[in-house]
Computed example of a mutant assay.
Amino acid sequence: MVAIGADREADGFEHAEAYGIPTFSVPFTSFSDRDAWGAELLSQVQQWGADLVVLSGFMRLLPPRFVAALSPNLINTHPAYLPEFPGAHGVRDALAAGASQTGASVIVVDNGVDSGPILAQERIPVLAGDTESALHDRIKVVERRLLVQSILDIANGTLDLTEKTPA
């Protein structure tokens, strides 16, 4: 079963609806604290019997209980060649550091910030005159390709979620 969830209304819900994919939203602002929100989010995810949870584009730290319940079958993408430039502003940070290259990564989510085992990653050059938006657009193409390939490899049993890919 496939379902799409978010912590707010999302543009992807319309796309999902067009393909008959169920959606759910668990707004963070509807709960008194992160743990209460995380408990409801976990309940919603578990309702679908998910074998794999993909957090691509999910920009909120999850409570440890949520991570513990789903890891290592909880993955995310990041717009940097981890462990370089973790956090919410990886693209901006790469540009600010004057990096000549950055990248895209797919990781298993742990309780740190972009610190879980790396499943796949690829370098992307920083071009002269790159803006944050232009660089991020190029990274997203690679991120999506790596994510799709990672999901296929997980489904086919050729990618172990417990082993880090050598850098």
Rank of each mutant, 00 (worst) to 15 (best):
V106Y: 01
T131C: 01
D130A: 13
P86M: 06
I107N: 03
D153G: 13
D153S: 14
G90L: 08
L127R: 13
G57H: 00
R144P: 02
G157Y: 00
R65K: 14
A134D: 13
L52E: 05
I75S: 01
Q44T: 12
Q47V: 01
N156H: 14
P72H: 08
E122P: 09
R145C: 06
E84N: 15
A155E: 10
A94V: 01
R138L: 14
S150K: 00
N111H: 03
L62W: 01
Y81D: 11
F66E: 02
V113Q: 11
A128T: 15
L82K: 10
V91F: 07
V45I: 06
S150R: 00
A68L: 12
I124E: 11
Q101L: 09
L161Y: 02
N111A: 10
Y81E: 10
P86V: 01
G129P: 03
R60Y: 08
I107M: 01
Q47T: 07
G112P: 03
F66V: 09
P83Q: 04
L55K: 07
R145K: 09
F66Q: 00
Q149Y: 05
A104K: 12
D110G: 08
L127F: 13
H89Q: 09
V106N: 08
L147Q: 05
N111L: 04
D160G: 10
K140A: 09
Q121F: 09
A134Y: 03
I124A: 12
I151S: 07
G98L: 06
S43G: 13
G116Q: 10
G116R: 10
R123T: 14
Q46A: 12
A68S: 15
G87D: 14
P125W: 04
L62D: 05
E143K: 03
H136C: 10
V67R: 01
S133Q: 15
R138T: 07
L61R: 09
L146A: 02
N73S: 15
A134E: 11
P125M: 03
I124F: 12
P86E: 07
A88G: 04
H78Y: 11
A155P: 04
V91G: 11
E143P: 02
N156P: 06
E132P: 05
L146E: 04
D110Q: 08
D110P: 07
V109A: 03
L74E: 06
E122V: 04
V91L: 07
D110R: 05
T131I: 08
T158H: 08
R65H: 15
G112L: 11
A96P: 03
G129F: 03
V53Y: 00
